[in-house]
Design a protein around this nucleic acid. Structure first.
Length: 113
DNA sequence: GCATTGACGAAGG
DNA sequence: CCCTTCGCCAATG
């Protein structure tokens, strides 16, 4: 990844936002996309997360779920259950692949930030 | 350079 | 209420 002017992509932006997610809170790909102005292209956010393990301070991607609060990206972690375990470590309850009280734990960057 | 894919989301049937 | 389709944009084959 070159740092040449325009290559600084939204990757860094996405990472920055995700890292700002308070512990014990979660957000959605769409919310992040909206905050970055790339609303509508939530896929890019999700796609960016594909490299969430690239930078040194790895991004807490486990705090990012889809709009339904589902742990859709769990398969991209070291183990299929790792994401849930990480969340539970932060007192976030996960039931049947879904964040419990998702609406209450939801953290919207365009609102909170 | 075209076709396919993707950790999404909203809308339509 | 469940399933399908479409849009979005970038990367990869």
């Amino acid at each position: 990844m070159e740092y040449s002017a325009k290559t600084y992509s939204f990757f860094d932006d996405v990472f920055a936002v995700v890292r700002l997610i308070p512990k014990g809170r979660v957000t959605s790909y769409g919310a992040i996309a909206r905050y970055l102005g790339t609303s509508g292209s939530a896929r890019m956010v999700g796609w960016a997360m594909n490299a969430s393990h690239t930078p040194k301070p790895k991004v807490p991607a486990h705090r990012v779920v889809n709009s339904q609060g589902l742990l859709t990206g769990k398969h991209h972690f070291e183990t299929p259950t790792w994401m849930q375990e990480l969340l539970e470590k932060e007192k976030v309850k996960v039931k049947n692949n879904q964040v419990v009280d998702f609406e209450k734990l939801f953290w919207d960057p365009s609102v909170e930030l």
